[in-house]
Structure formats: C-alpha cells, structure tokens
Design a protein around this nucleic acid. Structure first.
Lengths: 215, 215, 215, 215
DNA sequence: GATGAATGAGTTTTCATTCAT
DNA sequence: TATGAATGAAAACTCATTCAT
C-alpha cells in the first residue's frame, strides 16, 4: 500500500501522468526526499493535494515510483550499450559505457541527482531496499565484461576480476560524480566542463587502465 | 555574523565547549543539516536554546564552525603522513595516505558522515564555499606527491600529473566511500569489512596503478 | 433525504444488502459515528464510494438506517420475553428480562456498542431524535410489568410504579454496562466475566429488590 | 514525555494557566478527545499553536493533565463528605454521597461530560490507564462505608458487601447519568429536572434500598 | 444505476528564531 | 550573559461529498 502507483494514477491520460511525474522529479531532485514538499508539488502541477495521496498513497509511495522508473531507465540504456558494442574490444567497450554514463547524466540530470541524494542520506526510508536494487551494477554489468575480456585475451589472465571490477567501478562512479556534482547550479542543471574535455580525460584514464590490465 | 563562533562561545571553559561541539557533531552526523534540530540539540546538551544563537548566531553559523573544525582535522592528519613518509617511494606513500584515510573514517566516523552529506546535498547553505575548501586535496596534496615521484624517476616522465591526480583522487574517494557508505548502520557507527581485507585490496589496486604509472 | 435507505438500496438483492449492513455495523461499532470512514467502509465491502451516497444519501442516512435496525432488534427480543414469561411471577420476569439483555449483548455486541456510543456522544447528529426512540423502555416495558405485579399482589400496593421503574431501569442499565463496557477489548469483542457468575449476581440483586418491593 | 504538563506550563502565571485549562475543558467536553481541535482551542485562548505543544507535549498530554485534575477534584469532594458524615447512619451517608455526586455534576458539568465520553469511547488512547484510576470508587469508597454499616448493625450481617456495593454503585452511576445525560443541551450546560425533584427521588430509592439491606 | 477521480479544508505536530526578563 | 516562552508557517495526510462518465 505504501509504495508504487495505484490504479487511479495509471488510469489517467498519458499527458497528465507525464506532467505529474515530471513535476515530482523536479521536486525531489531540487530538495531531496525529506525537504521535498507535497504542498509545493501540487501547487506546481495545479491539482488538489488529496489527489497525490490517491495516486501514490504517501510521499514515499511517490518517491518509490520515481526511483523505480529511474533505475529502469539506466538499466535499459546500459543494456543497449552492451549489446551495441559486442564486436569491440574490452577497452573500447569500457569507454563506450563511460560515455553512456555521461550521456545519461546529461539527459536525465535530475534523476541522477535523486540517485546521489539517495545514496548519501542514510536516514532515508527504506534506503536499504533501494540500494540493493543498485548494487547490481558492478556485479551484473562489469564482471561479465571483464571475463569476456580475459577470455578474448585482451586482459592478462592472472588479474583478479573482482579487483578489476572494483577499480573500474570506482573510476565510473568518480567520473560521473566529477562530471555532475560540482556543476549543479542552484537550478539543478549541469554546465559541465564540456563533452570534449571529458572525452579526452576518459581516453587518458582508460589508457592508464590498459597499461595495468594488459599483459 | 552568519558563520563561525562568537566571543561568547570562545570564552566558555574548555569542557563546556567540548560538550557543545560533541553534541552538535552527533546531531549533524545523524540528521544532516536541515533535519538537525536545535531543540533536540539543546535538550541533549542541557543548555538554553537561546545560548546556541548567542554562541553561533544561527544554525548555519554552528554548522560552519563544525565543518571548519573537520577540515582542519583532516588536513592535519594528512600533513603528518606526508611528513612521516618522505623517505619512502611514491607507491608506498600513496598506500600510506590511503590507509590514513581509512583510519580517519574509523576515528572520526561522524565527521566523515557530515562531509559526505555536505557534498551530496546541493541545497546546502553556502555549500560552494565549503566545497572549495575541500577541493584543495588533489591539488595541494596529490600533485606535489606525483611531481616528486616523477622527479625521483618512480613515475614515467610522460604521464600528465593532472590525469594521474584525477585517477588517484577517484580511487581515494571511492575507497573511502566503499569503506564507509555501505556500512553505516542506523546508529551511524561503522562496522566495515575488516581492516585486513581492505589493506589487501589497497595493495592490489596500487599494484595496478603502478603498472600504469611506471615506465 | 437525510435519513433512511432509498429505493436504490432496497432494490438490491438480499445478500448484497446484508453484506453492506454488516460492514457498516462493523465500521460504526469500531469507530463511532464521526471517526467511521466511508473510504474504509467501501473498501471493505468492495463497492464504489458513490454507491453509499446513492443508497443512503449521506453518512448520517446510513447511520440512521443502522440504528433503526438495532432498535427494532431489541424491541423484538424483549417482546418475546414478555410474552413467553406471562405465567411467571414478577421477580422471575425481571430476572428473565435481565438475562435476555445479557444475551442480546452476547449476540449483538456491535449493536450494543453503537448504542452506547450514541448515548454518550452528545454531539451526535440528530441524537435527540434517536434518544427518544430509546426512552420508551422503562415506560413501555417496565411499567406495565410492575403494574401487573402490583395487581397480582406480588408487589406492595403503596410502591410508586415510577420509582420502581426508575430503580429497575438503573439496575438493568448498570448490569448491561458492567457486563459489556469493561470487557470490550481492542478488537471490540466481549470476553465477559462468565455467564454463570453474572447469573448468580442477578439472582442476588433481585433478591434485594424483592425485599424492597414486597409487603 | 507524552502526558502531563511541562515546567513551561507550570511556570505561567496563575491566571493564564486557568484560562488555558478552562478553554481546554470546554473543548474536550464539547467534542470528546478525537474531535477536539487544537486549532479551535488556541484560537479561543488567543495564543500560538506551538505553545500548547510546548506546555503539554501533545494533544494527549493536555488531555491527560485535564483528566488527572478532574479525578483529583472528585476524590477530594467525596473524601470531604465521608469525613463530614461520620456521625450519621449508613443510609444518610449514602444519601449525602449521592447528593454530593449531583452537586459535582452541577458544579463541574464539563468535567463529568469528559468522564462519560472517556468511559464509552473504547478507542481512546491509553483508555485502560484512565479507567483504572476510576475503578477505585466502589472498592475504596463504598465498601468501607458498607462494612462500617454492618459493624454498626445498620445493615443485616448476612448481606454480601460486594453485592451491596455493586447495587449501590449501579444506583449511583445511574442517578448521575439520569441527571446529566438527557439534559445536556447543545451548549453542554445542564438544565435538569430540578434539585428538589431529584432529592425526593433519591430519598424514595434509598428507602427501597433500606428495606433490602436491613434485617 | 454504478463508478471513482477530484476536491480542499481539516487534522496534529515541528521548527528556527526573537526578545523580554 | 543566559534564559526559555512565544511565535506561526510549514509539514504529511484524511475525509465526506460531488459529479462527469
């Protein structure tokens, strides 16, 4: 009862659903969970306060719905990269994944903000449940990539896949944070240090990684 | 006066100052800035609510004072490591610095929590000012370390010190987060995955770094 | 139309009517009038919220219907006792009536709860109207009983029937309350102090009454 | 923390305390616990909403304070009657106690209303705790009275004191309810059937009791 | 005849800050 | 210098009723 959307919401016409979700994402991205205000939200959408509670049961129900939506979006875009780069070598695939991560932040800066706040606000309701949904990344995504690389002879065979995954995960995370965090302005939009610049930096770091990973 | 402590606070006897700071650190670490409650704080300390405002001017003034104190504590412990390891080679110094970072989290988990929340809660008052105080790390600390390494011939001369610093910074940050974040329990204490384990992981990652950095 | 059921309700098939009434009794018994929730009620029944308003016009209309039903049920069971005990002496008839009251609480605990809440919540809508329906008890039921008793010589002729009725009414009411009130648990069911015990007590009290009433 | 008054309230000047209590009694008497509104209350008193919570912690804390005050008032006035009537015979003492009960309702109609609502609203928070405070009546008050009566030879020795207490308690309660309940008008004041009338009725009923209790 | 989405005033409680004592 | 009473806007959530479909 507490999380996810109810039939009442799903029965609304597409456009209204979109308006509500968009405004809710804005609100959570701007304020985090606790300081987000349902009052402000419904004022922005132009509906009655009671409606939100009819749609989602509670503030947390609304958040939960948004969060699941964000996870699904990430998962989907990464799956696509994996599929589309199957013919490339390991290091190119890592580079492409990193670029996709950057693109995701550019296309969905607010969703990424919501994610970051979630990770670092430990008093979040049901935070553990949400975190578990995310932790699949290095396990489900990176490790298979690395193992394929070893199998193809692109990575030296004596490298521990777990350590490799840890290091790549660290670099991934940091690149995304470095790209996103210091550049949020008060409006929440990103005005980063430029796509070209970050691309160059990624190439250089991957080159370092290559030296470490190869025979 | 919005930030820092006033004379009225500095004139208190040491013990009372310490009690106030300790309770404030607890409160901010547990709740973050916005959800921290002055009511709860003064109840815990056992002083009048008005006193806090006389000592620090505002909630933000109190936070500012705490934060400066945290920065100073980090800076101090890292300076010590730098000094104590001057005779070692670059890779050992990096390893020692990483271990020192881990130790800091163990000794001051609440300060690290405050730092993390600060970094990822963008609606923080005067957040930019605080962030600038922190970004000195890779510049002031890591770059000189790397340049000395190059100069001593422990790092290949053609490696861009900025890229090297970025990568090390990423690994530093991630190690600390990996050590701290998933292990905060509801009480805010850390029960990490064991010092020995993390030490082994650090060694393995530094080995990877070495391969990338050396000739 | 503020009270009573509309044709739309009476046209429903018996089983559906029964399901609605039963759920409504549960709701009012558990929460009283004001705190009873139509939302909760329709969820429990599994019909649309609008239907209740089509059937009964308003929350009060529904309550009114339930209350009339309760009164009718009591009246019916007491009439039966009166008829069935016509051949017994006055004191046995009083005892039988008391036992019937106890039985009523056992068989219809929720209706009795609704009655009690009604009597002691003065801000009830149309409360006066409902109370008048109830006050008939001592007048319509007890007084004829007493007068028959006097006429048959079972009660001394100089006893004022009104005073006698008042006292019996007090004892009736108190027995029922004593039986019901302290034993409502949080689920609303009754787990009284045992039928045998109460029966013994009734006999003893009637014995006291007899001493007062007889020559 | 949840119940009773805090220092902040007790430190207020007598007149303000009195104004607040009086308004709160009005509110609870008129609406019962759940429907009583803190909004309405503070508007009536003319203080800020926050103040009530500073004084009593919560709505229940306020109620609890009022309720304890009511109990204390009853206990005090009954103790006085017991003391003042020590030289009279049992039946006169019962009569005096009854009259005192009636007087209490006349002097504190709102407190009696609060009591009645409390008894018959089972979903009350901490209701059991409150009820226990009250149940002392027949045990602590009536039984000693009866035992003294037996000892003095005013009551036949073979009468079970518990049954006698039960019956008297029933009559007490009913007299008070009969006096109070049907005569609450919408303003909550009592316009009963007249002191003289009730006095006469009391005498008549006590006469009946006497016949039952004496040898 | 039945439905259930929309409403918005209502609820209790928390909070940082002010300021008279 | 220290106190702590007063404030009132803000929070999340509930509810009976209406009415277009």
């Amino acid at each position: 009862m507490e999380s996810g959307a109810r039939k009442t919401f799903l029965r609304l016409d597409r456009e209204k659903q979109r308006r509500i979700l968009s405004a809710a994402i804005d609100e959570f991205a701007a304020w985090g969970f606790h300081r987000a205000s349902i009052n402000r939200l419904v004022r922005a959408i132009g509906i009655a306060k009671g409606s939100i509670f009819q749609y989602f049961g509670s503030k947390e129900g609304l958040f939960s719905y948004i969060f699941d939506y964000a996870i699904e979006t990430v998962r989907f875009s990464l799956k696509k990269v994996k599929r589309d780069t199957e013919h490339l070598d390991f290091y190119s695939r890592v580079e492409a994944s990193l670029m996709e991560g950057i693109s995701f932040i550019e296309n969905h800066p607010k969703l990424y903000r919501i994610y970051l706040k979630m990770v670092f606000q430990e008093d979040f309701p049901a935070r553990d449940r949400y975190l578990k949904k995310i932790r699949l990344f290095s396990v489900d995504y990176l490790k298979p990539l690395i193992e394929t690389g070893i199998h193809r002879g692109e990575i030296r065979a004596d490298l521990d896949p777990d350590i490799a995954a840890f290091m790549l995960d660290a670099i991934f995370d940091r690149f995304m944070q470095a790209y996103a965090v210091p550049f949020f302005d008060s409006e929440g939009t990103i005005h980063g240090s430029g796509r070209e610049e970050i691309k160059k930096k990624i190439k250089q770091v991957i080159d370092l990684v290559k030296r470490g990973f190869k025979d």
